[in-house]
Design a protein around this nucleic acid. Structure first.
Lengths: 346, 346
DNA sequence: TTGTACGCGTTATCAG
DNA sequence: CTGATAACGCGTACAA
């Protein structure tokens, strides 16, 4: 005699035992048949398949996850969900996830440590099978909880202190260098550099690379004024506008991320200055508008789709074999010269 | 102090029973203390809190979900994850989810029924506490599985046949009407209309609204040629380019979604025609580039952030009380006149 | 090859 | 206010 109305008023959903009964076999056999984890006779297989259809059975992921101690969930933790760069990254990861029958859990830290901490805790609590993360801070982000929980973790876009697992990042020093060399070659010495957000390793590296290239050049007496800050697009616009109104205004601007590029472009547009005759603009990341504006934006680009794909595939591999040697992939940026960068013109 | 472990060196996470032992209470009391589902004496509460810290306990979401028959997961199913419109929608939903301690599972159907079907199955299998969906097809999308599983479902952006639950959509007929009236007022009669994707109710409604406004106007002998199709941005560009080369070319273009707007804009740019003197362009959705290009794009916009927020909050409410009357919210589009639309000019 | 039985971690029920 | 305990649905030793 079983009690009937015990738990919440749940709707009836077929369980594995219902399938077993319908097929006249045991639950173990049904499980084996459905997961392919053991040999099952052809005639039983047939009966089970019919029973699955008849009962409209869908395996319960929660029960399965509890038993397996691992859910079919990947977390993707990014610092800014609206940034087209991350959208592209997420999109690439999603493609692989879908292929692997994994569900993508999206977390947006908004560059905030507290949120990141919470999300990592969530991933652990839900026993996710993987985490791909663009950390909020190189110094302060803490991935140890993931390590302890033995959740495969791939660090993308930004480095983290104290993490030695898989990582897929850009050669950001090279990105900064590429930018500087391009502007140097065009004769620019008075440059406004916009860098941010300050806690990201990408920011730091681009800044270092950019500065180093200038200091190593013949042209030592340059007058770069670089802002390494946490401003967003609209503030970048204000800062740029201010710089353009100054007496000794820059002849070129280098914006080290997508949002800053937009702010800079807008400010220049509003200033009425001619581009690139009066001022050059070199942006970062191939945002959709880069090729729609006139003049079209010259940029330093990243192979972001590849980064996402590689990171996701790495997750798959590490789940198959946790012992594989950590991957430390560093991809190369590219300079795409369009119309906003030109020789200095007095 | 070391715990005795079984042979496998698998580092075990603290369970609720570990906390209970450390605090010298029962698991039931720990559970009540942590979930706040029952009153617990202050001294025990104190001990339990200490024990939680001491054991570094994190409640296991999987075990909880199994017991509760409901996980802390929301699915967001959209048809195109790269569309800035959906990015904005997702972003708004994520904000609420984070507040509610729900994790967002992102599914991208890419307008494909098969994928949508799979994702819905996934949401059911994982016993998610809610689904927000922009369906792939008004006619063919099937939400009955969610209904059977009693998963609160909010339909956004696009209608679905046979669904009578909560929905948050735009008045798309009005959107089409707004577009037509604006162009009518400017004197345009030869218009290229770009509509898509064909299976979406948004497409249909905008088309109907647009057409109706023209037919109801004094100006009956208009020559709109409307393409209702599944083309994407690059194909829209080709189609537009072709139309512009024709002998009797349109004096205005209405693009009924973001991607088509981009294609149209690019084609016009390449044609060398003056905007809006030679040709007007009216786009849809306030994509980031709309205000960066010159001339800036006139558009029909939607309150997308509000749509996401309302949908998410509705999910919360329905989880609290499944019996509330279904919400059928229809929001209003707005016409934002910028620089790409002007009076006809022979 | 197939079946039995147990446990994954949690919470709701029930009794005290 | 607290404790003991029975499920939730599944996969897998172990037994047959």
């Amino acid at each position: 005699m079983s009690k009937q109305k015990k738990h919440p008023p749940t709707p009836k959903r077929a369980r594995i035992v219902d399938v077993a009964n319908a097929a006249g076999v045991s639950t173990a056999t049904v499980s084996r048949a459905l997961t392919g984890s053991g040999r099952v006779g052809p005639e039983l297989m047939q009966r089970i398949e019919e029973a699955v259809v008849a009962t409209n059975y869908v395996p319960d992921s929660v029960g399965r996850a509890l038993r397996r101690q691992r859910s079919d969930l990947w977390a993707v933790i990014v610092s800014d969900i609206r940034n087209p760069y991350f959208v592209e990254l997420i999109s690439a990861i999603e493609e692989v996830a879908s292929l692997e029958d994994q569900s993508l859990v999206l977390y947006n830290t908004d560059e905030l440590q507290v949120r990141e901490r919470r999300f990592i805790g969530s991933a652990v609590a839900q026993r996710m099978s993987g985490v791909i993360i663009a950390v909020a801070s190189e110094q302060d982000s803490d991935l140890s909880a993931l390590e302890e929980a033995e959740i495969p973790t791939i660090v993308v876009d930004r480095r983290v202190q104290g993490f030695s697992g898989d990582s897929v990042v850009l050669d950001n020093i090279q990105a900064g260098k590429l930018a500087a060399e391009h502007l140097l070659k065009l004769g620019h010495t008075r440059i406004l550099g916009l860098f941010g957000p300050s806690a990201a390793s990408t920011t730091f590296d681009r800044y270092i690379g950019f500065k180093a290239a200038y200091e190593n050049s013949q042209n030592r007496n340059y007058g770069t004024s670089s802002l390494l800050t946490d401003i967003r697009a609209d503030q970048a616009q204000a800062v740029t506008a201010h710089a353009l109104r100054g007496g000794l205004r820059p002849t070129a601007i280098y914006a080290a991320n997508g949002a800053l590029s937009a702010g800079a472009y807008r400010a220049v547009q509003a200033s009425g200055l001619r581009v690139p005759e009066d001022i050059s603009i070199l942006g970062t990341d191939d945002t959709p508008w880069a090729t729609m504006v006139r003049p079209a934006l010259s940029v330093i680009t990243q192979p972001v789709a590849e980064m996402g794909k590689v990171a996701a595939e790495r997750l798959v591999k590490r789940n198959q074999n946790p012992e594989v040697e950590p991957l430390h992939l560093v991809l190369s940026p590219e300079l795409v010269i369009r119309e906003t960068t030109g020789p200095i013109h007095q």
